[in-house]
């Protein structure tokens, strides 16, 4: 029989929802001050976003990350119970030029002169969390945690105890970027195979020359056989390419 929709809760198992579209969210400054009040010792910074999307984020220090996350989830006004996206980002060592106006004395007259300073920022790895609220239907609140460096100290606290959706995504960040998440229930590689070494999404990853080759016992037989047969470029590779590819 054709299925039709239910009005009100009756014998079937389906219902239709009313649309509530309340958009109430505090600004990032308010959230920042409330976090600092609720989690003592937390160091929060607001990272501005240059694009027209106006999605600024909060930089959270690693020791208080779990406490901050828990506060964000249980606080009645925010109720950020849905962690939508966990991203890893790799920042290499950068040199950032800053131009500031400095008062200097030029030929006896005090003037404001542009002075460019170069600041060296050491590289780090970052985990960015996009949080929404299913209860209040607002968001996003974006939080970031940074590692100290890109080598030994690439460790962060896992937020999986707070939001279960971070489980697979943090595993993926571990696999592709190499950030070790403390407190993750099952941290192992997820997209690459378990014996793989190195972390492919890092900016300084170099593809190995032989990544499509797997050693087999037959290889040395094939190497010896090659000497006895004429080369067949039309079967084994494209002949007639006039020049090597210049990129």
């Amino acid at each position: 029989m054709p299925l039709r929709n239910l009005e009100g809760k009756a014998a079937g198992s389906l219902d239709f929802a009313r649309d509530d579209g309340a958009w109430m969210m505090e600004s990032l400054d308010q959230i920042k001050s409330r976090i600092e009040a609720a989690v003592p010792g937390a160091k929060i910074e607001i990272v501005a976003n240059g694009s027209p999307s106006q999605q600024d984020s909060l930089l959270i220090d690693n020791e208080h990350a779990v406490a901050t996350a828990r506060f964000l989830r249980v606080d009645p006004a925010l109720r950020l119970d849905f962690c939508s996206n966990v991203t890893g980002v790799d920042w290499l060592d950068r040199v950032v030029k800053k131009t500031i106006k400095v008062k200097t004395v030029v030929e006896g007259v005090e003037k404001e002169v542009d002075q460019t300073t170069e600041e060296e920022i050491p590289g780090y790895l970052e985990a960015v969390y996009h949080l929404y609220s299913m209860t209040h239907k607002h968001g996003p609140v974006i939080i970031r945690t940074r590692t100290a460096d890109r080598a030994e100290c690439a460790r962060l606290s896992s937020l999986t105890p707070v939001w279960r959706s971070a489980e697979f995504q943090e595993r993926e960040i571990y696999d592709l970027y190499g950030i070790h998440f403390d407190g993750h229930p099952d941290l192992r590689r997820i997209l690459m195979w378990d014996e793989f070494e190195d972390h492919p999404m890092r900016k300084d990853y170099v593809q190995p020359d032989d990544f499509e080759w797997e050693p087999t016992p037959h290889d040395d037989v094939l190497a010896r056989a090659k000497h006895h047969y004429p080369p067949r470029p039309q079967m084994d590779g494209a002949e007639g390419i006039v020049e090597p590819l210049k990129r």
Binding site: Q234, A238, G240
Partner: peptide
Amino acid sequence: RERFDALL
């Protein structure tokens, strides 16, 4: 019938 040169 061939994989490389014929498909160029």
